[in-house]
């Protein structure tokens, strides 16, 4: 059975029921609309509106879900040498995400968060964390194009608060 998903820009995606169920948000909406796998009529007569996801981002989400639809639930976390909690991003996922420029990656993460697709969300969150890890504040600001809204005095105060040892 197939499910119709409609994006914010009015694009309709017809996906397998199993793919649709990978999103907790879509699952809840289907339940609320009495759509069931065994009731073709309910699936044909309804579509799921997803006003927070665009066509371009939805296509990427579906591509990821297609790849992972047969995955077993896995233990998400492990600690690295510095005690950081990390999620192992598979080679396929690394390859999948590396072509997204940063703005698109953030949109994809926003969509994964809204759709509640945990595996995709963890992949992106870990990918961005890996980009940040070990970098200085000015490198991070430049990499992510963030405008600093702190004065030098405020920065000094924050450094004082976060320091633990006298230099």
């Amino acid at each position: 059975p197939n499910v119709k998903l409609v994006t914010s820009d009015n694009e309709e995606f017809v996906v397998d029921f199993r793919i649709a169920k990978m999103s907790v948000t879509v699952s809840r909406l289907m339940e609320a609309m009495n759509m069931s796998e065994t009731d073709d009529a309910s699936l044909l007569s309804n579509s799921i509106p997803l006003p927070n996801v665009t066509k371009a981002v939805m296509a990427r989400v579906i591509e990821w879900c297609e790849k992972h639809k047969n995955d077993e639930p896995k233990e998400e976390k492990e600690n690295d040498k510095r005690g950081r909690t990390t999620h192992v991003v598979s080679d396929w996922d690394k390859e999948f995400l590396k072509n997204d420029e940063f703005g698109r990656l953030c949109q994809l993460m926003g969509a994964a968060n809204y759709l509640e697709i945990k595996g995709l969300f963890n992949d992106i969150s870990q990918t961005i964390a890996n980009m940040i890890h070990g970098k200085k504040s000015d490198e991070i600001a430049e990499m992510f194009n963030i405008h600093c809204d702190l004065t030098e005095a405020e920065k000094k105060e924050i450094r004082k608060k976060t320091a633990w040892c006298e230099d």
């Binding site: 510095r82 005690g83 950081r84 909690t85 990390t86 999620h87 993460m109 926003g110 968060n113 969300f121 969150s125 870990q126 961005i128 964390a129 940040i132 890890h133 070990g134 970098k135 200085k136 504040s137 991070i140 600001a141 963030i146 405008h147 600093c148 809204d149 702190l150 405020e154 920065k155 924050i158 450094r159 976060t162 320091a163």
Partner: peptide, 23 residues
């Protein structure tokens, strides 16, 4: 929520750096 999840995957030294970027 997304930013907190990303930051929780870092260490305190990383967070020291992030803290001085914006309020």
């Amino acid at each position: 929520d997304c930013l907190i999840d990303i930051f929780a995957r870092l260490d305190h030294t990383d967070l020291d750096e992030i803290s001085t970027i914006s309020g």
